[in-house]
């Protein structure tokens, strides 16, 4: 639309000429919406009574703006918290932090026993994950589940929140015990990815229960009973953990569509 409105139709439109046909009125209005020059020409053509009316309207609007209610205040921090925070995981995170602290104390006390911090690290985020994406803990799950951000986006946001609250206590304990960060971080990330991956098929809560229970029964419990540090948490198995964490993360992203509906 490069042509501007010819003078005759513009004058007729301004004067409210009843003989102007609808098609022309429409074309004039569409053009006026996007052309400041033609709006200025329209303003010049306007008759004095119309200008007085417009001035009155302007004054009334200005008065309304001055005396009307204040615009609602933007509270960026609150909004950020609403979009990221998962309040329902707080009790679980506190429990996990307590467990890590206890494991750390025991490790300091009995350095010759298998490290409980290492045995706990893989399963530490699982409870938080199960809570963060379940029907029972989110009162508005039914509304949330039917929105376009539901599924992987919300799940990943919540996973980030869980990891951000679970990993610092582990990091602190690992640092004080002088362990390599990879020893606790990689198993932790692998189990997180595996839970999300399996969760897409059987539900995150069930996946967390199976994987966490499996680890505790098959690895952690025998290790505590026999006092041998199992091979899977020794530095020699780190390359395998790295590969598993990478593969798990990739597969989770590839299978993102599984989370479109809440299980």
């Amino acid at each position: 639309m490069t042509d501007h409105i010819p003078a005759a139709p513009l004058a007729a439109y301004t004067a409210g000429d009843p003989h102007l046909d609808d098609a022309t009125v429409w074309a004039v209005e569409v053009h006026l919406e996007n052309c400041a020059g033609c709006r200025a020409r329209l303003a010049e053509l306007a008759a004095p009574p119309l200008r007085t009316l417009l001035d009155d309207v302007q004054v009334t609007i200005d008065r309304g703006v001055r005396t009307g209610p204040e615009p609602a205040r933007r509270r960026a921090w609150r909004r950020l918290a609403h979009r990221w925070a998962v309040w329902s995981v707080i009790p679980w995170v506190a429990t996990v932090a307590g467990a890590v602290l206890a494991a750390f104390a025991l490790d300091r006390q009995f350095p010759e026993r298998p490290s409980l911090v290492l045995l706990l690290a893989p399963v530490a985020p699982l409870a938080g994950l199960a809570i963060a994406w379940s029907r029972r803990s989110d009162p508005a799950w039914e509304i949330t589940a039917g929105t376009s951000r539901a599924g992987l986006e919300l799940l990943l946001r919540r996973t980030v929140v869980v990891l951000a609250t679970v990993l610092p206590p582990l990091a602190l304990a690992g640092w004080r015990l002088g362990m390599s960060p990879a020893l606790w971080l990689l198993p932790s990330l692998t189990f997180t990815a595996a839970t999300l991956l399996a969760g897409g098929l059987i539900g995150v809560g069930r996946a967390a229960a199976v994987l966490g229970g499996g680890w505790l029964l098959a690895v952690a419990l025998p290790a505590v009973l026999t006092s041998d540090l199992p091979a899977v948490v020794q530095p020699s198995s780190l390359p395998a953990w790295a590969a598993a964490a990478l593969a798990g993360t990739l597969l989770t992203v590839l299978r993102a569509g599984d989370h479109r509906r809440v299980n």
Binding site: A72, R78, R79, H82, R83, D138, P139, A140, W141, E142, I143, T144, G146, T147, S148, R149, A150, L154
Partner: peptide, 26 residues
């Protein structure tokens, strides 16, 4: 969608809640 059991977050204000839902619907 308004479900039969309308769950809500008690600490949100009316505006915040509706805004959150608008954001969830992209």
């Amino acid at each position: 969608y308004l479900p039969q059991h309308f769950g809500f977050y008690p600490r949100f204000t009316v505006r915040e809640y509706v805004e959150y839902m608008a954001w969830l619907r992209e």
